[in-house]
Simulated assay, not measured.
Amino acid sequence: MIKQDVERVCDLISSRRQVEVRTIVAIAGPPASGKSTLAETVVKSLNTQQNSVVPFATLIPMDGYHLDNGVLEPRGLLPRKGAPETFDVIGFCDAIRRLQSARHELFYPKFDRHMDIAIANAIAVHPETPVVVVEGNYLLMDSDPWRTVADAYAATVFISPTLEELESRLQQRWIKHGFDPKSALRRAKSNDLPNAQLVIRNSRKADLNLNQNYTETGTRYAF
Rank of each mutant, 00 (worst) to 15 (best):
V6Q: 07
T162N: 13
G82E: 02
A118H: 03
C93A: 14
Q197S: 11
S183R: 08
T162C: 12
E128A: 15
R113A: 00
Q49F: 11
H104L: 14
F56R: 15
T48S: 14
R220F: 10
A95C: 13
S203V: 02
D144Q: 11
H126A: 15
L67M: 15
S190D: 06
D5K: 11
E105V: 12
T23R: 10
S14Y: 04
F158L: 13
G34I: 08
A32F: 03
R147P: 06
A120N: 10
D144G: 00
Q197P: 02
A196F: 09
K189V: 01
S143F: 03
D116A: 11
F107R: 14
T148I: 07
N51S: 14
T162M: 12
Y108T: 09
A188R: 04
Q18L: 08
A118D: 01
L140K: 01
H126N: 11
K176R: 14
S168C: 05
S45W: 06
M62D: 04
P55F: 01
R113Y: 09
T86I: 03
A120M: 05
I60P: 15
E7M: 11
V54R: 14
G70L: 04
P55R: 03
L198V: 00
P161I: 06
I96Y: 07
V42N: 03
I13C: 04
T219N: 13
A120R: 12
F179E: 09
G76S: 01
V125S: 02
C10F: 00
F111A: 05
S45E: 15
L139I: 05
E135V: 02
L170M: 13
P161Y: 10
E135F: 11
T156S: 15
A102W: 06
T86V: 02
D88T: 05
P194M: 03
L139A: 05
V125W: 10
E167M: 10
Q50Y: 12
V133W: 10
F87W: 02
D142W: 00
N209K: 06
V199F: 02
T156K: 11
V133Y: 00
E85R: 06
G70H: 10
Q49T: 08
I119V: 15
R173S: 07
